[in-house]
């Protein structure tokens, strides 16, 4: 199993959420982003180029997203960082449990 230097990878991601990433960060991101559809974080664009609301996919086609209006972003990179931190926390907990 790969041992991630999470402090380093977090710093790398936070500095540049979208774009070039090191192989180790790429590897970690593949894990974080590969969760099943149901419950997966997505953004819903509520004002073009200005506002995105955090949501989760429900797995149902008719009502595909559940909005979480407590988390509204005006910057896509901030949204990326927020979700990264959330997922990393869950991932770390899972690693510890194992």
């Amino acid at each position: 199993m790969i041992k991630y230097n999470l402090a380093e990878l977090t710093a790398e991601f936070e500095a540049n959420p979208i774009g070039h990433h090191s192989p180790a960060l790429r590897h970690l991101l593949q894990k974080l982003r590969s969760s099943p559809t149901k419950g997966k974080f997505v953004l819903v664009c509520t004002k073009p180029y200005r506002e995105w609301v955090l949501a989760t996919l429900t797995g149902s086609r008719k009502n595909p997203v559940k909005l979480n209006k407590r988390y509204v972003f005006n910057d896509l990179l901030e949204a990326e960082r927020f979700v990264f931190r959330r997922r990393l926390k869950a991932f770390t907990r899972l690693e510890e449990d194992q």
Binding site: K40, V44, C45, W52, P64, L76, E80
Partner: peptide
């Protein structure tokens, strides 16, 4: 390689 954004 980034968060999915759902549009109207």
């Amino acid at each position: 390689s980034r968060l999915l954004i759902v549009y109207p």
